[in-house]
């Protein structure tokens, strides 16, 4: 692998070392997956994280309070076994190279125009289908308006001025606010 050159300097066979490095990387990667048991990629959809689901709720925390590992108070990354006290730090961790390596998430490539068009078509399709479903409750809306008409006539019937009484008609009201009848 290394030889003495004509001037007594050592020279190295670069291809040989490159092959060895490649094999070593492959072995390390396999052993890492075996250790952690995370061969399956567990990618978290960041946009769907809901930090407010436990807002104003009480939870009984068993286990340790301090430290960064294990169950406890705060936001927990189960993959990396780390806890964070605020969501900004948690989001920072999700974007960190350490977490990306553990979850197997890859950085995306720059999009081409075709990909942009494909995503756009899908979004337009979803939007139009949503509009269609939103039209359906409109049928029940007309029913609601019927109910409202009924409610209005009922209110008119109950209205104090509607009572047949000369005095109340003249005054425009029929009681002085007393509940006594």
């Amino acid at each position: 692998m290394s030889q003495q050159g004509s001037f007594g300097r050592r020279t190295w066979d670069r291809n040989e070392y490159e092959r060895m490095a490649h094999e070593r990387h492959k072995q390390e990667h396999q052993s890492h997956q075996r250790q952690t048991g995370k061969s399956r990629a567990k990618i978290i959809d960041r946009a769907k994280l809901n930090f407010e689901s436990n807002l104003n709720k009480r939870q009984v925390i068993t286990g340790q309070v301090g430290g960064m590992r294990g169950e406890g108070v705060g936001f927990r990354c189960e993959l990396c076994d780390l806890r964070f006290k605020d969501n900004l730090k948690f989001a920072d961790h999700l974007n960190s190279p350490q977490h990306m390596m553990n979850s197997g998430e890859k950085m995306v490539e720059p999009a081409t125009l075709e990909q942009v068009k494909a995503v756009y078509e899908e979004l337009v399709r979803r939007k139009t289908s949503n509009d269609d479903t939103q039209d359906k409750p409109g049928v029940t809306d007309t029913n609601d308006s019927h109910d409202e008409d009924a409610l209005r006539t009922k209110r008119a019937q109950n209205h104090p001025i509607a009572k047949d009484d000369d005095m109340s008609k003249a005054l425009g009201f029929n009681t002085f606010g007393s509940t006594k009848r």
Binding site: A91, L94, E109, A111, V119
Partner: peptide, 22 residues
Amino acid sequence: DSLYWKLNCFNVNAATILNRCV
């Protein structure tokens, strides 16, 4: 420094960012 940036603007490209733009 904002949460929206950290959650929605990381690891996106010109195609996937459309989901947020709409």
